[in-house]
Design a protein around this nucleic acid. Structure first.
Lengths: 164, 164
DNA sequence: AAAGGCGGTCTCTTTTCGAGACCGACGCTA
DNA sequence: TAGCGTCGGTCTCGAAAAGAGACCGCCTTT
């Protein structure tokens, strides 16, 4: 039970990872972005055990990342990305960038091209104010409102901190 | 043994995930980017079992993501990010962006500010040719050199495909 | 000599995973 | 209408991984 408690920490990296950080979840989402929607297609595409897939799809639906519905034409089930799930795409592209750079000795297996353009999709880290490109060295962490709310919730609002 | 075999697939999302896709690995790296270098600091910072931490640090060192060395001043061990490890930062920032957007009801717990600037670090997906911002809908996958090399390796070079 | 910090190991129990059989519902087709 | 294939989904069971916590040798400090 210790691991799940990490989701309560006031950290926007930790909280998603409690949901996404396991063997299969991000691979399932990768398939979803590739257009896969059906249970059996996920299963055969990844080789994931059926019971595991069932569990992971359920969790993603519970978190509002996938939406389960009946297909319009037939009557089989469909798992589609919600808006929230769709927003995960930059994460997968960031992983791909790293994979292309460090785990693809023969060059990228797949180009992710811009529709009707010679270019390719790339993830960049930049300042949303001045637009300058950034690396980890340029980043300074600073407490935000979510942290203060967390402190209030844990130690009670109206006090300065855990001194009592 | 099935899961590890995914690392052989010609996919730059799958291959990194076989290394990074488990409960703790990305959390350990998050700590590393926060400046943590010592075994006990990782352990107490995350609450990870010591044996688990030992295993994960070893794997990250094996993959050249962390480098283990003796500290300059004292004689304790130090785990530092290599260049390859440093390049993982956009992945963590992409996760954070999503966490801030979808799992931080009270606002971001932490701002990741640009040094000496009011702005904040943001991940964006854009075309490396025309610079236009992109989403999953704008991306068209296309076979790259790594895929062809993989086909050659599996089916033998000099043939057109798996027809033999 | 005692105490405490360090990275690291070992053991034991619980949890999760993997493989594959199995299920009912539905749609074909003979 | 009986047989067959496909669909999403469930169940069982042995194997692998995770969690906890004690334990270790080494070193420094007191």
């Amino acid at each position: 039970m210790r691991y799940e408690q990490l989701a309560d920490l006031p950290c926007s990296i930790t909280r998603p990872l409690v949901v996404l950080g396991d063997r299969w979840t991000l691979l399932i989402l990768k398939e979803a972005f590739a257009g896969v929607r059906r249970f059996n297609a996920f299963q055969s595409g990844l080789g994931i055990p059926r019971s595991r897939l069932q569990d992971r799809l359920g969790r993603l639906v519970d978190h509002g990342i996938l939406v389960r519905q009946q297909a319009a034409d037939g009557d089989h089930a469909e798992y589609r990305l919600s808006r929230k799930g769709h927003d995960l795409y930059p994460i997968l592209m960031a992983i791909r960038d790293w994979g292309d750079a460090h785990m693809a000795p023969d060059g990228p297996p797949v180009h992710y091209r811009h529709r009707d353009c010679a270019g390719e999709a790339r993830v960049t880290l930049a300042c949303d104010c001045c637009g300058e490109r950034m690396t980890a060295h340029d980043v300074v962490p600073e407490a935000g409102p979510g942290l203060l709310a967390h402190v209030d919730a844990v130690y009670g609002a109206g006090v300065d901190g855990p001194e009592s």
